[in-house]
Design a protein around this nucleic acid. Structure first.
Lengths: 213, 213, 213, 213
DNA sequence: TATGAATGAGTCTTCATTCAT
DNA sequence: CATGAATGAAGACTCATTCAT
């Protein structure tokens, strides 16, 4: 509970180091040192390195809404813009880290190909939560998008752009591939919006109907 | 050169193991054993693990055209179909490996974020070559695609779909996210093709039947 | 005193685990868990692992008469038969444990060769008590055994058969060596009984029938 | 091959330390230090601590004949005396070590109750070899012993006396229980020898017959 | 070119024990 | 009495790399 509770310090240090160096390349000693705890204390909270990884993945999932989603929702009303704001938030993360780093979850997904079920499930849960928000926003866009659009599929593509974009950004040490991917996605979605019937009715219904009753 | 030259056996073993377990998680002993070479022989060909990684990346780049591109070019005339054939080839790779594995190059890209220049450049070169082929095919599609289309950007997106799709496939142990991403890409490109001024022969042939009804 | 007093639960758990895994291979955490006590509670009763061992040895000594000796005395009148009943009780212990385990005391004796005096003395006390009962029974056999027989020495041999037999039983995962050792001991004692001057009633009863024929 | 080959130095150091401190209580660092080898060199010869234990047990088995049996055979013609010479050799071993130590094999048997098959089998093999020599000598004693004597059972008892005697010797820090057990065994065997028909014929045949021919 | 022993830093993990609450 | 966090030394084992032959 306390902001500097050892357990939290450990998880935070692990989040940072796993992100920067990867799971396998981060030693528990490094985490211990970064967290400022000593000796075998780490094993009072996590009975193995893998359990610490699970805690890190839990933390990502818990923090997601507060840290990533909420600020976007507050700043943007248009659900479509929220999606691109999410991608842009990612871009800023990359820009800040000098493209040396990638997606924290994606990197862990890579390393845990053969990891036991628990870790794999938590990674999938993180991805699923992410995609869930995007899909929700796509659904909120209502009739502005074609009726037969596979909204879950498009949400998947958004996440794909994120992950594939960051991977190439890292490979080229440049944000250009990330930006290009997002630009193409924007073009695609613009075309979907353009094709949809003039969005008057649906939008009105959502905002005007209540007023009528 | 000889198919069982020790050097080649080492590189092949490393390609396989790096792909399956990752670079960091593969020990030189494992490679030695898989390659059937003994003792410090490995150091006669590669003076460090990292140099072996470079050789692996060189091998991927060398084999790319013969193994990946050529078969596709031979089987498909339509450049657009070649792009989806490339994605489908990838899909089969994943299906064969049980979605436990990812993109050999992409995984190395993620793992070697902080690796020295030589490795980074070779990874970038692999990605660039890949994207290069896709862009070439997009250019071959000529006027079937809108004139103001950012062909390099779209090629980047294709690679993004590949990498982002495979990452989610691994996280979910399912090909569904990969397929969904490709389907959305297909939809996007179809819209691009539809918008372009009616192309003559080629397009007709693909859409001739419906025209009859 | 209470059957579920924490201290007793700890000692009982330690008896069981020391017997099954040995003293060195049993961790205090395992004991804590098996006993259902938490945290450092263990140190309220025993200020070190070694003191717990002492308590275990005390418990064995205390329980010996009630658990091992009494039932035998009640079931067998003949002192010689009591000795073999003791050996047989041991055999049943081994049979139940699948010959994977040995003598609880003997094992601790072997493991604590260099242990401080307190432990050593308690182990010796256990052995001495054991041998004491056997010697008492041998003395009760009175004139049925040769007068110049070293009764204490024979009692030692009985214990030796027990310990040596169980050790071989464990090594071979078979009760055969134990049984063979006991059979030889029986043969030896039979010869001693045969040599002694014809005892009156007691011996007659046991051999009465054959004499008739 | 060389007397100071590292591998041999390691095995010798392990034999000594396992005997003095036990298997579990001996750390690989101690062995490394005692053997005078450095770093991970130990793992070039034995890929685990357990494999080193196996090598130790192999060494005991190999050295048995040369170190234990041969000197006895050379010094004693009478097979019965050879048996007691074996027991006496053991006694001297204990005397030299101040009764702080026990039977090297027996102690390892104790600790390896749950060890994998390989170790267990080698321990059993050592015991079997030991018992094998005693049984051979008992058979060589021919008609001096009763015809219906279970020679294998008696051999087992001899080993039992050894193991059980040393266990009590350690518990009491005294050779008295060992000596007492051996004395009783001697008494038993003397009685067996006395009972056998006057050993003239058989002995004559073995020693006299040739003279006749 | 090939071999296999040698190296030593570093990995995760467990342990008995202490101490503040 | 009881708790559970804290401690730090030590455990077995792995690794990339070097070197003498």
């Amino acid at each position: 509970m306390t902001p500097d509770h050892p357990r939290d310090r450990i998880v935070n240090a692990a989040m940072d180091l796993f992100w920067r160096h990867g799971y396998g390349a981060t030693s528990l000693s490094q985490i211990r040192e970064a967290a400022g705890v000593q000796g075998g204390s780490l094993y009072h909270f996590f009975k193995s390195k893998e359990q610490l990884l699970e805690a890190v993945l839990d933390a990502y999932l818990e923090q997601m809404e507060a840290v990533l989603i909420q600020p976007i929702v507050e700043r943007h009303d248009d659900p479509i813009e929220r999606i691109f704001a999410l991608l842009d938030g990612y871009r800023q993360l990359l820009a800040g880290a000098g493209t040396a780093l990638g997606c924290p979850i994606g990197d862990l997904a890579l390393e845990s190909g053969a990891e036991p079920a628990a870790v794999g499930e938590k990674i999938a849960a993180n991805f699923a939560a992410w995609r869930g928000w995007v899909r929700r926003w796509l659904e909120e866009a209502g009739a502005r998008l074609p009726g037969d659009l596979d909204r879950d599929g498009l949400a998947t593509l958004v996440l794909t752009v994120m992950e594939g974009g960051v991977m190439q950004a890292r490979a080229h040490h440049s944000l250009v591939p990330f930006d290009a991917s997002v630009a193409q996605l924007r073009d695609y979605i613009n075309r979907l919006l353009a094709e949809a019937p003039p969005a008057r009715r649906r939008t009105r219904m959502r905002r005007a109907q209540p007023r009528r009753g």
